[in-house]
Simulated assay, not measured.
Amino acid sequence: MNKKLQVFVSSTYTDLVEERQVAVEAILNAGHIPAGMELFKAGDESQKETIKRWIDESDVYMLILGGRYGAIDEETGKSYTHWEYDYAGKVGKPRFAIVIKEDALEAKIQQSGTKVMEKENPQKYQEFRKEVLSKISRFFSDEKDIKITILESLKEQENNKELKGWVSGENSGDLEKVLQENLSLIKENIKLKDRIEQTEQKIKSVKEFDGYSYEDIKDYLIEKKIPIPSIQTLGELAGEECSLFQIFITTKDWFSIGIENDYTMNEGARFLFYTVAPNLLAFNLLEKQKVAGEVYQRIQLSNSGQKFIAMYEMEKHKKTKSIMKK
């Protein structure tokens, strides 16, 4: 072999870290050059342009398709992996894909959980998978399958006279050293990206409320309007049409103590219990409790509700502090 092919490796990231590293090592072991955007975060337009350039400069495009479709590019409505696949085809790059077998995906889900499967856009994932399988592609179940597929596919591409290759082995005595350094850098990049992903997941988990973010719930509560009857115990809210968010924040102390649907409840408590609370229960901001020895129930702030209130108070504090500095 007298030419080294540059292979652009494309995949979703969090579900295929190990498979991607196996692919990179297999490409290097075959004597070729892997390329990929290990540290790039989806969604940055300048990064998309850089990815285009890398694909343009590569000889071959390789896709590893697991169980996820990936983050959506707002411009195209497709995932970034799907966008890369289409772009490589558009510019005429030889493409081959390795696709996880369904039983292997099931085993992976059992081992790693549902984070390795597509939950937000399952229809788009299935359509993309169907498209990929209609082109040059092979299935994989384990690392051995990935290695064999890469070796065989690249062996075929070595005979493609239209591919010029990245560099000739005859002209570079230090090529093996360069390849090994490249592998080391890629491994370090993968580890760094993994740490970044883990940190982002930890930050995200702090903000999540059963799958919803603080901002998502707040936006919904602000948009949800509820007419309030003229009840004196509701104070300034009485007779107004207010957002659910305003009602929740204003009456948070009521819910903190707890509202019981016993015979002594006043009209304000009845309104909060039967009209307002069901909307907040839907997001687990409140919880129902059975009062021991009684037939009535108590509704009060849940742990999620307390966290939501705390995040709101901190947000308000930061805004006030910012205004004071100005």
Rank of each mutant, 00 (worst) to 15 (best):
R298T: 11
L133K: 13
V167F: 01
Q21P: 06
D59Q: 00
W166M: 00
I217P: 15
I222V: 09
I148Q: 11
F8G: 03
Y274R: 12
Q246C: 07
G173C: 08
E240T: 11
I203F: 11
I228N: 09
Y263V: 05
G235N: 04
F245R: 14
S256H: 13
T76H: 03
D145W: 08
A23Y: 01
N160P: 06
S46M: 12
T114V: 15
K144A: 06
E267H: 01
F96L: 03
A26D: 10
V24K: 00
Q47G: 11
S213G: 13
V7K: 04
K319Y: 13
I228H: 09
N182P: 11
T76R: 01
Q232H: 03
L237Q: 00
E45C: 07
I217T: 03
K48F: 08
K52W: 03
Y212F: 14
E240M: 05
N160I: 08
N182C: 08
V291A: 11
N279R: 12
L63C: 05
M62A: 08
L154N: 10
I226L: 10
D262V: 02
S11W: 05
I196S: 07
L179K: 07
G92S: 03
Q198A: 09
K144M: 06
D142P: 06
I309M: 05
L221H: 08
K147A: 03
D103Q: 05
L28T: 01
M37K: 10
V7L: 04
Y69I: 03
K119E: 13
I146F: 01
Y312Q: 06
E313W: 00
L301S: 06
G70M: 05
F96V: 02
L179C: 15
I259F: 00
Q110I: 14
G258L: 14
F273P: 02
R195Y: 14
R195P: 09
H32W: 06
